[in-house]
Write a protein that binds this DNA or RNA. Structure first.
Lengths: 212, 212
DNA sequence: AAGCCTTCCGAACGGATGTTCGCGCAAACT
DNA sequence: AGTTTGCGCGAACATCCGTTCGGAAGGCTT
């Protein structure tokens, strides 16, 4: 990526702020005014240079057909993840059905797509209390889950423990008739229980710990 | 938000895909062709309706002056956070200076602005090993920090412990001549040391635990 | 000096584009 | 039946806007 001249940098910066502000690219004459350039042809000339140097892409003959390339312009896809509620010991998670999905979201969080690995129907829960501290999940954390009713060995899943009346997040291992729930924290002991006592609520994808 | 007619929904959907694809809004005649509409005035009519119903915003007299409103269109600001490296016991963090900033980033992560609370100069580190497990931070986690050389009581900071040759993330409390470093996990014991043994590297903002 | 490249300027051309106006049609209402 | 309202159609208009062209000034090499 070659270096660019003062005017070209100025134009590129103007492009960014204009798009950020208006949500559509400027016309050549917008750039002319915004950068104090005397002629449209100068703008055109420098835009060609920027295109050569691969900072932008232009759709010729199309008004405002300018697209900023590179990390600053190439926006990652954003997905809006509904925060369906809070997860706390003693309350089962309301597993979302596709119909209900989006209706009973009390809130939502915008995240970049790679944070949920491009998975579908992801929902989020706010963690209340420190009951999952042995899974390295603190009060106030946000966990992202994808709907699931079953799980493979080693999957990190949110499970409803019927006898305890409690939801927790553990790695699950089926061992014959019983089920082992292994905390993320290796210093903690696993929970052993029977298969009919656990009910998988969702598969863990990722989690986020916000600022205080 | 009122309901919209079939044609209006079609136009709105076309707007989304067009912008997603090209990164600039379509002209009225683009919409006309894309939706199989016979006249530009029909497009104009329905765009006015969409504007009345608050689905879009138009800049009149401006070509392609269309902006999609609502959660799907209103994109949260994205910031690119440089991942400066890995943090592991036994290695101090390379605190970024504004000059170096952006140069020695081995990688970067795109996050929505609210994840770092709009703070400036934020950088990220990949956590290697389980040495910070008592702070509820696991191997593979990504922590977001802002540069800082000092901290107030109760701040969660990354500190370099000279005698241990180790970096860790704790809440810091100054208690006279000594310093108390309190783990996030309340079941763990705090570390007591002297003020000249600790060196603040950065202030904790948030952390993220990716999928496996 | 001569030639070439880069950058900039002003003007003009022609297509692209938003807007407007008159008209038609059907359903709903008076 | 007459009127209103919502919606669509086609054409025309004025402007917006990307492009092009001739020219000029400065730097660089030969």
């Amino acid at each position: 990526m070659q270096e660019l001249s003062g005017k070209q940098g100025q134009i590129l910066e103007f492009l960014r702020t204009f798009i950020e502000d208006k949500d559509y690219p400027p016309s050549i004459r917008d750039i002319q005014d915004g950068c104090g350039i005397s002629s449209t042809s100068v703008v055109d000339y420098n835009l060609r240079k920027l295109e050569e140097k691969n900072y932008i892409r232009r759709d010729r003959e199309v008004s405002r057909g300018i697209e900023i390339l590179g990390s600053r312009g190439r926006r990652p896809r954003i997905v809006e993840v509904p925060v369906l509620g809070s997860i706390a010991a003693g309350q089962p998670i309301p597993v979302p059905t596709s119909e209900r999905w989006g209706n009973d979201a009390e809130d939502s969080v915008a995240v970049t797509e790679d944070m949920i690995r491009g998975r579908q129907n992801v929902f989020a829960l706010r963690v209340k209390g420190t009951s999952m501290i042995d899974d390295l999940i603190d009060d106030g954390d946000i966990v992202f889950l994808e709907p699931a009713r079953s799980a493979n060995d080693g999957d990190k899943v949110a499970v409803w423990l019927k006898d305890r009346g409690e939801v927790t997040l553990k790695r699950i291992y089926h061992e014959g008739a019983r089920v082992r729930l292994q905390p993320a924290n290796s210093t903690m002991q696993p929970i052993y229980t029977t298969a009919d006592n656990v009910e998988v609520q969702g598969r863990f994808i990722s989690s986020f710990r916000p600022a205080d």
